[in-house]
Design a binder for these strands. Structure first.
Length: 370
RNA sequence: GUGGCUGUAGCUCAAUUGGUUAGAGCAUCAGAUUGUGGUUCUGAGGGUUGCGGGAUCGUUCCCCGUCAGCCACC
């Protein structure tokens, strides 16, 4: 499934390719998030034009609405949403964290009380695999338990053990399925738990390994530390996926530590809330400073938004609460993240990742666009 | 012209019928958002209470004058 194409000579950054039933994608890869079978605000044509080779969706959310029966009748998630390239589906493990008020955890599964209609749904690890099979997911995540930060060690260990147990059950339930299945490494910020979890999941031999339970409130340095530690024990021939990461600088730091895959709501959520990411740092487009700023968001960007619209116009759209503002900023942010990945891959190919990182962070932190 | 009602933050309105530093929503300004619960959350600035006088220890509140707006009647 994973082919290592080139290992950067001066860092752990690596260039690779992942093969799925719906085509290949290059790594390091960023997956735009399409929780409800849509990348919010964008058509899949726009997502593809921005350079996306794979998108992420969410089994639990799609299971709740429209429901797996509808997806089945539609001929699978790809056909339903009109995207014929790879789809990775998250299991609902993150919803154990993010929807903590709506669920009860048990050793054999999780009971969710739907935030949509209040109905109770008990989901086992087998159920979650079955849902993802019905969706026709190319890369599946097993049900896992993601804990809050800070978390006491005893609690982190319980969640980790449960996650490993569920991983075993998921692997068994997944047998014979064409989709790939990853193992999710938990263990919060405790190095011994992380190493123990990684080792035991590697022994179970998954198609790839996710590093979960990061970016849940801890500092960047703690995140980098765990990523470096865990990436170091995942076999070289398996992809490493840092779930929910992150800011552009987080992605660059993680790539340097050998991480291959990322997903994050940041480009679309920030886009909807009026923040753009640029090579010169973050731009909060509502700020009065842009009232008469007729430059593009990022003069170095080749996206439709930057080629056609000014900061002043985008600020106007946000102030007037016009939906085009959300769309244009989401489009730019998605393009920016995907373009960042293209630049990262190009740098690794030439063994220049370290120089790239240094330049990128310098420009980004100096706010040269602002 | 006469009578009545209303004037409080940029806007719409509060202020326990005279009592600490006149509040709120919206707007403005700034910040937050990490495997998405789709316009959210947090903070800040902003007042000569139309203006002038008076009574009172003390007034957005009571009295007088004046200005503005609205309504009714001549």
């Amino acid at each position: 499934m994973y082919t290592l194409i080139h290992q950067d000579k001066n860092s752990k950054a690596r260039l690779g390719k992942i093969t799925t039933a719906h085509g290949d994608f290059d790594t390091p890869a960023f997956m735009t998030v399409g929780t409800h079978a849509t990348v919010k605000g964008l058509t899949f044509q726009q997502v593809q034009d921005a350079g996306a080779q794979i998108v992420l969706s969410n089994a639990y959310h799609v299971f709740l609405r429209p429901g797996t029966e509808v997806i089945k009748k539609a001929g699978g998630l790809h056909k339903f949403m009109g995207w014929d390239k790879p789809i990775l589906t998250d299991s609902g493990g993150y919803q154990i964290f993010s929807l903590a008020l709506f669920r009860k955890l048990h050793d054999h599964g999780v009971e969710f009380k739907s935030h949509i209609d209040g109905l109770k749904h008990f989901l086992t690890p087998e159920d979650v695999i079955k849902i993802q099979e019905t969706l026709g997911s190319d890369i599946m995540m097993p049900l896992d338990e993601c804990v809050h930060y800070p978390c006491v060690k005893d609690q982190a260990k319980v969640a980790m053990e449960r996650t490993i147990e569920w991983a075993k059950i998921s692997k068994k339930a997944h047998q014979g399925n064409p989709g790939k299945l990853f193992g999710i490494i938990q263990g919060a910020t405790f190095e011994d738990l992380r190493l123990d979890c990684a080792k035991r999941l590697v022994d179970l031999d998954f198609d790839g390994y996710s590093i979960g339970g990061v970016s849940v409130g801890e500092s960047s340095n703690l995140i980098y530390n765990i990523l470096e530690l865990v990436a170091g024990v995942i076999p070289e021939n398996k992809p490493r996926y840092a779930m929910g990461i992150g800011y552009p600088f987080d992605i660059v730091e993680a790539v340097e530590r050998g991480v291959d895959m990322f997903d994050c709501v940041i480009p679309t959520r920030y886009g909807r809330n009026g923040t753009a990411f640029t090579s010169g740092g973050k731009i909060i487009i509502r700020n009065a400073a842009y009232t008469e700023d007729f430059k593009p968001l990022d003069p170095k960007c080749g996206c439709y938004t930057c080629k056609n619209f000014s900061r002043a116009y985008l600020r106007h759209l946000f102030n007037a609460k016009e939906m085009l503002g959300l769309i244009l900023l989401s489009l730019h942010n998605v393009y920016f993240f995907l373009d960042l990945m293209r630049q990262i891959r190009a740098a690794i190919k030439e063994d220049k990742f370290s120089q790239f990182k240094q330049m990128f962070l310098m420009n980004y932190n100096n706010q040269i666009c602002a």
